[in-house]
C-alpha cells in the first residue's frame, strides 16, 4: 500500500537517536521516553485530548447535520432546492482556509464571542459538513426506495421507516462521511490557529512549529504512537465485531 510508505519512514525515524531526521545515529527509544517525561509532555497530552474531543464532537455533529440534510435533499423532492443546497453545502470547500480563518475571526470578534474550544468546534463543524455530506448523499442516491415503500405499505410510520430502513442502509455512507470529517478536523491547522485563542492547543498547532523548524524525532514518536493506538483500536473493533457475529 502506497499510503503507508511515508509512514514507514516516520516510524523508522522515531527510533533515531539523533536530534534531526536527516542523519541516522543508531537505534534508540529515547523519543518515546521523551514523549511521557520530556519538558513538553504535558502540553502534548492536553493538545492530543483537545484534538480528539474537537474531532469527535465536530465529526458527530457534522455527520448528523449532513445526514438530515441528505435526507431532505435526496428524499425531499423539489429539484430546485437541490442545486442551491449543493452549492451552499460545498461552500466551505471552496473558500481557501486562510480566508475562512480571517473572516471567521472577524465575525466572532464582531459578535463578541470569546475564543476557546467552543469557537474551534463551531468552525470545525462547518468545514466538516461537506466532507460528511457528499459520501452520505452519494450513498443515499444509490438506495432504491422500494424498501421504504414496502415498509410504509406495511403501516410503518415515517420515523420508523427512517430509523429502521433508511438509516441502516445508509450506514456505509455515514461511516465514510464520519471518518472523513474526523480526519479533516484532526488535521486542520490554519483555521484552528486563528480561532483558538491563547492557551488552547490542538495537536496540529502544538507540533506545527516543531515540524516547521526541522522535523524532530519526538514528533515522529508521537505520530507513531498515534498510529499504533489507532491500529490497536481497529484490531480490537474487528475482533469484537467478529465475536458479535459468532454469538448471533
Amino acid at each position: 500500500m502506497i499510503l503507508y510508505a511515508p509512514l514507514v519512514i516516520v516510524t523508522i525515524y522515531s527510533f533515531n537517536d539523533s536530534k534531526s531526521i536527516i542523519t541516522w545515529q543508531g537505534f534508540s527509544l529515547r523519543w518515546y521516553f521523551d514523549m511521557f517525561t520530556g519538558p513538553e509532555s504535558a502540553k502534548f497530552k492536553v493538545a492530543a485530548s483537545n484534538s480528539f474531543i474537537i474531532a469527535i464532537v465536530s465529526a458527530t455533529v457534522a455527520t448528523t447535520i449532513a445526514t438530515l440534510a441528505a435526507t431532505a435533499i435526496v428524499r425531499g423532492g423539489a429539484a430546485r432546492y437541490r442545486t442551491a443546497s449543493l452549492g451552499l453545502l460545498s461552500l466551505p470547500l471552496m473558500v481557501p482556509e486562510i480566508v475562512t480563518a480571517v473572516a471567521t475571526l472577524i465575525f466572532f470578534n464582531t459578535i463578541g464571542f470569546s475564543r476557546g474550544l467552543t469557537t474551534i468546534i463551531l468552525a470545525h463543524i462547518v468545514f466538516c459538513i461537506p466532507f460528511a455530506y457528499l459520501p452520505i448523499a452519494a450513498r443515499m442516491q444509490g438506495i432504491e426506495d422500494t424498501y421504504e415503500q414496502a415498509a410504509m405499505d406495511l403501516y410503518a410510520t415515517k420515523r420508523q421507516t427512517f430509523t429502521r430502513i433508511l438509516l441502516p442502509l445508509m450506514m456505509p455512507g455515514i461511516i465514510s462521511g464520519y471518518l472523513l470529517a474526523f480526519i479533516v478536523s484532526l488535521d486542520d491547522f490554519i483555521i484552528t490557529n486563528f480561532v483558538k485563542g491563547a492557551g488552547v492547543e490542538t495537536l496540529p498547532t502544538a507540533i506545527f512549529g516543531a515540524v516547521k523548524m526541522g522535523i524532530k524525532p519526538n514528533i515522529m514518536a508521537i505520530s507513531t504512537a498515534l498510529l499504533l493506538v489507532s491500529v490497536v483500536f481497529v484490531t480490537i473493533s474487528y475482533f469484537v465485531a467478529k465475536a458479535d457475529n459468532k454469538n448471533k
Binding site: 480571517v102 475571526l105 491563547a198
Partner: peptide, 11 residues
C-alpha cells in the same frame, strides 16, 4: 493579521 482581525486586547 490575527491582531488586526480583532484579537487585540486578548494578548
Amino acid at each position: 493579521a490575527n491582531l488586526k482581525a480583532g484579537a487585540m486586547g486578548t494578548y
